[in-house]
Amino acid sequence: MDTRDLLLKFSSVDGNSGDEKLAAKAAVELLSQYGKAYVDNLGSVICEVAPKKNGRHVMLDAHLDQIALLVINIEENGFIRTYPCGGIDRRGIYGTKVRVLGKDGEYPGIVCSIPPHIKDVNDKNPERDEIFIDIGFGKEETAKRVRMGDRVMLCGKWSDIGNGYVTGPALDDRSGCVTILEALEILKDKELPCGLTAVFSTREETGGQGAGAASFAVAPTEAIEIDVGFGKTPDTTEINSKAMKKGPVIAFHPTLDIEISRKLIALAEKNEIPFQVEAYGGSSTGTNADEIATAGAGVRCGLISIPQQYMHSIIEKVSVDDVKNVGKLLAAFVMEGGEN
């Protein structure tokens, strides 16, 4: 399957944090051609591509989960009170179509929005526990179909847009997963100089527990985390966002292994892969790299980002070429990352 089709197809499978089962099933199918793939205790998908070799074992990780809402109460008249499961954008949540993953199937619904005709009711964005869903049933009928803890997926459309972009929900971070699949495809018939494990981990949007547990189990000597990063829009700066279509973003951060960051730059240059660099401080990278680096006895970790516009919305957008170039850089790191 080509990169574009894979992005559109894989990101359209539901997988909210803590409930990634469907996405994990799709992931096992996609990964099985490259090695033994299985689901671990926290729901992450682990694919053993090659055993440890020459003292080196690389782990590539991207997160499988996506943001959504969680049912926390069924109210009078059948409205459903929800709470974000991951960083939902409360600025534009009103009037969103949703699918409640209920007891015996999916129920379409709408996030209640206050029309401008009813003024002065609430001039704030809704609080986290004030996001209500209307599935068109009264209380009794709703209670038969919807349970506490059921996930409520935000509906969007997956499509091409402009020249070489794709858009839709969950591209954070299925795009990252696709970069790993791209790398595995490049490496498929090659003799690998090292061990290799691919991980599509769970619960990143709620803390990164999946990646932490998988890293402990895999115990790699080094890891690369692939996530989406902020793409440039008219309301961002050159510092807090990176250009679209200008290639992978290689990160420097206190948590990350500086030699791996430098190695990634050298490999991009050597293999003529376009790239960008970001450097930032603080105690957290805001990605699974935080959990991976500190897992077990510690893992040397690098971080590559795919520039993405409108992160955590139903209109997430990435460049197909950026995704392909991250895949190439990952393959180069597996093949040549151990060389001096």
Partner: peptide, 20 residues
């Protein structure tokens, strides 16, 4: 297709997040 975009929530300040 068109996307009614805004910067990602991670880049939004608290007051921007509370007010429309």
């Amino acid at each position: 297709p068109g996307l009614l975009g805004s910067k990602a929530i991670h880049l939004v300040k608290k007051e921007e997040f509370d007010n429309p």
